[in-house]
Amino acid sequence: MMRVLLVEDETGFAGGLKRRFAQEGIEVDMVSDGRQGLDRARSGGYDLVLLDLMLPKMDGIEVCRELRRNSEVPVIMLTARDDDVDKILGLEIGADDYLTKPFNFRELQARIRAVMRRARVRNTPGVNEERIQLGGLILDARRRAVLVDGDPVDVTAREFDLLWLLACHPERVFTREELLDRIWGFDHHGDTRMVNVQVRRLRQKIESDRAEPRFLRTKWGVGYYLIDEECPR
């Protein structure tokens, strides 16, 4: 049974969401301020934390940042503002996904599925350190090899790093800034065109049609992500 923590000060919203989850047979614990939310999330046992961005006492960004110091629990941010996307998804905060209010419950379910699957991939012992398979795409970390439908593809070290990072978090959208920081390092800050160029080269190698990429997708206006072909949609 999945355990969900909802940190939300808007009681009407929290009540509605809790009831909707209950209809799907999922129990949701609710707290209404940031500090309590952080304590409850830390005390553990949750499979997922749904975190509102604007919270009394401690805002969602702060909660998430604190939580990430010692917890890998998947976090989805719920927000009425979508102008902080870069920050929310950024390395510093470490949320796994975000959703803008108002949203369809179905949409939330899809995000939860993706995030949960990602967490499972990450937590399977031994697997994520050496080999990741996402449908037709296989990454082998030891040999730094990439296989597309069984055929080996030559990639550079940096291209492999990029692919590996995306593959470790399938379906998670990475902003260009975050990719730049993680793959190139902070001294390249701001030069996001390098990410574009790298993605374009990588697509030439692993995609049969760059205009309709099968694996390495664009989240328009946000960044890039690697699709998990086995993830239920």
Binding site: E10, F13, F103, N104
Partner: peptide, 16 residues
């Protein structure tokens, strides 16, 4: 942005 919060509440309550 302010309208989104009550809309979000209305939406999820209606869905439930």
């Amino acid at each position: 942005h302010e309208m989104r919060t009550p809309l979000g509440t209305a939406k999820i309550v209606l869905e439930s």
